[in-house]
Each structure stands twice: as structure tokens, then as C-alpha cells.
Simulated assay, not measured.
Amino acid sequence: MKKSRKWWEPCALIASHIGNATVIFLLFGATAAGMGILVRQLERLNVPSFTLWLLTMLDYATIITGAILYLGLLGAHTWRALKEMLK
């Protein structure tokens, strides 16, 4: 016998997934912010420009990857919750 789910259970599930994804995205953001601070400090120490460029690109790649993964996760879980609610 299949257990009937309450209408709010998919909403609660997606809320918990969004909360977890937000924490992970903030960790990506903190890493990117730290990398930006590091690049500024290294500029003051006259580190070669190629190294600074490489670290800046890594900073951008980190935040862009985090944002794409975050939006993909939000879309996938929203779709799954909508399908579950409309059953």
C-alpha cells in the first residue's frame, strides 16, 4: 500500500535542498572572494602579471561554476517538487 504524502512535503523537501545548496554556493563565493583578496595582495608584492591573470581567471571560473551548479540544482529540484505535487 502506497503511503499518501501531504501537499507540503515536496515544498519542505525543496526548501531544505535550497538551503543546503545556498550554503554550498556561499562557500564557493567565499573562496572566490578570498582569491580576489589574494590577487590584490600579490599585486602589491609585484608578482608577475601572468600569475595574477591566472589567479583572476581561476577566481572567475570558481564563481561562474558555482552559480551554474546552483541554478541547475534549483531548477532540477523545483521540477522534481512540481512533478511530485501534481501527482
Results as ranks from 00 to 15, higher is better:
residue 85 M to W: 03
residue 84 E to L: 06
residue 7 W to A: 12
residue 30 A to W: 00
residue 36 G to Y: 01
residue 54 L to T: 10
residue 2 K to H: 13
residue 73 L to I: 13
residue 73 L to N: 13
residue 30 A to G: 05
residue 32 A to N: 03
residue 48 P to H: 05
residue 7 W to D: 11
residue 42 L to A: 05
residue 32 A to D: 00
residue 16 S to H: 07
residue 12 A to R: 05
residue 45 L to M: 11
residue 15 A to S: 08
residue 46 N to I: 01
residue 60 Y to F: 14
residue 49 S to F: 12
residue 9 E to L: 09
residue 68 I to E: 14
residue 58 L to W: 07
residue 16 S to Q: 12
residue 19 G to Q: 14
residue 75 G to V: 08
residue 20 N to Y: 15
residue 71 L to K: 00
residue 49 S to N: 15
residue 56 T to E: 14
residue 40 R to P: 02
residue 55 L to D: 02
residue 84 E to H: 02
residue 29 G to M: 07
residue 84 E to T: 03
residue 51 T to E: 09
residue 34 G to Y: 06
residue 29 G to E: 06
residue 59 D to R: 15
residue 21 A to R: 03
residue 12 A to V: 07
residue 80 R to W: 08
residue 70 Y to I: 04
residue 37 I to K: 07
residue 2 K to S: 10
residue 15 A to M: 05
residue 84 E to V: 02
residue 39 V to R: 02
residue 18 I to W: 06
residue 9 E to P: 00
residue 51 T to C: 05
residue 40 R to S: 09
residue 12 A to Q: 09
residue 43 E to W: 01
residue 55 L to F: 11
residue 53 W to T: 11
residue 43 E to R: 09
residue 76 A to C: 09
residue 84 E to A: 10
residue 13 L to N: 15
residue 11 C to E: 14
residue 13 L to C: 14
residue 40 R to A: 08
residue 65 T to L: 15
residue 25 F to Q: 13
residue 58 L to C: 15
residue 65 T to I: 12
residue 74 L to M: 06
residue 5 R to M: 12
residue 10 P to E: 06
residue 61 A to M: 11
residue 12 A to M: 10
residue 17 H to D: 13
residue 34 G to V: 03
residue 73 L to E: 11
residue 44 R to C: 03
residue 10 P to R: 06
residue 17 H to R: 14
residue 70 Y to T: 03
residue 14 I to F: 10
residue 74 L to C: 04
residue 70 Y to V: 03
residue 57 M to V: 15
residue 37 I to R: 05
residue 2 K to F: 11
residue 48 P to A: 04
residue 79 W to K: 12
residue 67 A to H: 01
residue 7 W to N: 08
residue 64 I to T: 07
residue 39 V to P: 00
residue 75 G to L: 13
residue 9 E to V: 07
residue 36 G to W: 01
residue 75 G to C: 09
